[in-house]
Amino acid sequence: MLAKRIIPCLDIKNSRTVKGINFINLKDAGDPVDLAVKYSEGGADELVFLDITATKEGRGTFAKLVYEIANKINIPFTVGGGIKSIEDVDVLLNNGADKVSINSHAVNQPSFIDNLASKYGSQCVVVAVDAKQIEDDWYIHLVGGSVKTEIKLFDWAKELEYRGAGEILFTSMDHDGTKGGFANKALKTLSELINIPVIASGGAGKIEHFTSVFKEGKADAALAASVFHYNEIEIKDLKIELNNNNIPIRL
């Protein structure tokens, strides 16, 4: 039986792991290679690394880091952050990444998703969407959440599926960093609307939040950062508890 996935996410700046709250106030959270090894040995199903460096030099350093990570771990990992071209993707895949995550550039140039899917196959293309609820609708936001667009989450997700995205990584900006639980209602709607896997992100604080994101939110995978970086939740304990709740999980 296909298992639900637990995915630690590492935001990378200048070769260090960082973590902020609501996309601001960055704090150092350790060496990414050490963390990657710790998580993969500790039972993580996949990892995500997001490069939040803005400079060109930083990009080269990130590619080297990807290669180093690929040599150290034997589980799949996705990389993203500022990807704008086929060349960017080539560099990351050639350094050993398994999938890429596209965010802003999918909004700026939607045909980029079609191009990536036809060149590498949908299974390689994760599209990250950051959204915020405004009255009854969820709106896509860009640039680390600082710029609101008029694009509605559910319409956008449908379009991304049609264009060939292989998975959607949905971050609720309202929940991110709060440790108050995932956006289960929106996640359920999203998961039932589209026919590709949905990765839930934003709001993990306790083990129960993961149970409910799979049971109520119908997510295929759950992503979190600080609860893992700061040892608030051990992946092993989390997975035992999910298994006790009859959620299919790789122990």
Binding site: M1, L2, A3, R5, E46, N195, I196, P197, D220
Partner: peptide
Amino acid sequence: DNKLKTPQVGWNT
């Protein structure tokens, strides 16, 4: 089948 989420992504037995 179209009713299944495709691609299948993840760990299966």
